[in-house]
Design a protein around this nucleic acid. Sequence first.
DNA 1: TTGTAGGCGTTATCAG
DNA 2: CTGATAACGCCTACAA
Lengths: 350, 350
Amino acid sequence: MGQGEGQRHATLRTVAQLAGVDVSTASRVLNGTSEDARRAASREKADEIRRVAEELNYRSNPHAASLRTRRTKLIGVIVPRLSDLVLATIYEGIEDAATRLGLSTFVMNSHDEPREQKARTEVALSRRVDGLIFGDAHIDGRFIDEIAERRIPFALVNRRAGNHPSVTCDDYLGGRLVAEHFLELGHERVAVIAGEPYASTGIDRTAGFRDRYREAGIRLPSSRIVHSHFDAAGGRQAAEQLLRGRTRPTAVFAVNDFAAIGVLGTLRDHGLRPGKDVAVAGFNDTPLARELPVPLTTVRSPMHEMGGLAVDLLVRLLDGEQVKSERLAPDLVVRASTDPARLSPVATDL
Amino acid sequence: MGQGEGQRHATLRTVAQLAGVDVSTASRVLNGTSEDARRAASREKADEIRRVAEELNYRSNPHAASLRTRRTKLIGVIVPRLSDLVLATIYEGIEDAATRLGLSTFVMNSHDEPREQKARTEVALSRRVDGLIFGDAHIDGRFIDEIAERRIPFALVNRRAGNHPSVTCDDYLGGRLVAEHFLELGHERVAVIAGEPYASTGIDRTAGFRDRYREAGIRLPSSRIVHSHFDAAGGRQAAEQLLRGRTRPTAVFAVNDFAAIGVLGTLRDHGLRPGKDVAVAGFNDTPLARELPVPLTTVRSPMHEMGGLAVDLLVRLLDGEQVKSERLAPDLVVRASTDPARLSPVATDL
DNA sequence: TTGTAGGCGTTATCAG
DNA sequence: CTGATAACGCCTACAA
């Protein structure tokens, strides 16, 4: 590959020369801590240095700096897929926080494939990232354990695994909230579309739901807990399977909004009215949920915030601090898909 | 910030020492072209070097390399927001292609704000990216023109602006396809939900649609072309506005699937059946489109592919080649939202 | 085919 | 407070 556009940024030497100081002084003023700067040069000199730097559009070369300091201010982020809105939103939180801290991030998709998780991690490492954030942890923790053993600094986000530091939603509680809601509505024959079997999100949401029902004296037969992909097609497939069963559930909890949308579609195909004939709840409170023809009852999880906190966690880890995992509280958001009273009067007839 | 985990990768010197050769030979074998490698060392020596490198998990330090070569193999990618599925999918295409070529990418959100576009671009530049891919071009081209003047290598994706090199969908044709379809169905009172006024995607899709209708002798009054955000909430707002009008359109073309979903919701709220009372078409063929309760007629655009081609374009540009913009063909996908015959027999009653 | 030396831009250290 | 100097890891022109 060719040349690009040569010298686009001035170098420290140039700045120093034009400001009439030596390189180290310029460095201290421009790239040191504010304290360094204060004791590095007289006010006037410092101002002059900054003026020249500004004029030449000087930017410290991070590659040179990282070579010297052995820290890159780079964070690698690995997610199942960015085209999953949940992960995209979490990543936005990561990016915002990182930017605020002067860090840069690389994202990569692992498609939840152990092979790719490994490969992407190695790519990030060979780019010399200071640490990693994984949004694709599998509950068995095999891969993550390896990373931990290699003493690579990392934080998990969205999904937990083992005792590794993570920032998650309190998924168990979220599941309980949905169960509570269903119980209040009097549903006794219920089903769960449980997501991927390796994701703590689905596992915990399902467990919370199941436990709450059990406490109410109702046992969920395993035939009413169906795994699925975390998207509309997955939800549809799972719902088809449920509807093939002998007894139809009166309420379905899909552990993900997109899966829930697939459920809505399937119900319609079978001539069933969501919210009236069958209650449906999702998880995450995706922006889409409230805009659907039948607005979706769901559990709001602080996706953006989780991303930011994962960055904080990782940074504290890199600072050598002892860190603790965080579990953020979810909120139930009731809409028409579980509550016929909320269907607009006209729409109920449709 | 603290220390992390010290020496995680071997250096070239270590490899060379253990393999019993000098650094330059090792470098030529490991990081040179295959030709370099061949004439750099005898077969056995080369093999030995590679063996040691493998054993030590040697990875060339890209920061050191880029310092020397003045090329970083880094590409900056700027999009309106990654939580927009269209952009996320395009970015996946970018990432795949970049990975294949041994390049790494930084993504950042600009939220379509000129200020942020500028700021993010500067961040990318100060990270010394070799080039940029913009998914957030505004049709006025103000910002992009500036970048071009500064002779910074870049490619546009999804949206075009001026004559700058871009990879887009043939949006104009896409709009025509929808018009054609509506005309065949006999719709004469139609409306367009046109997206953001600064995005070529919405502009071109609208123009294609309008032109095809004009050719059929039907003029769209400007009151039936409503701008909107590219999401469900935006579509809902725009649809509300349309339904407040004196005469109700019999068909609505939303230039984006998510906006179309907002339209579906609004119709239901007004007691109107999508596909029966009002036809609705979207754009992009998002995976969700086919799974909706009323599956959505839409125009398939090659999002993933566009991303990959944008990388190719940029790489050719960096190689000093003359490049030409590309416009990829879209496909109409007809589903129930415009065709009552496709509504499942039961569902039509709902 | 192999080796040597210098420098990319920074920052840390040490001496004044 | 200021300045000189070395070194981070790699690449490459040049010499042998």
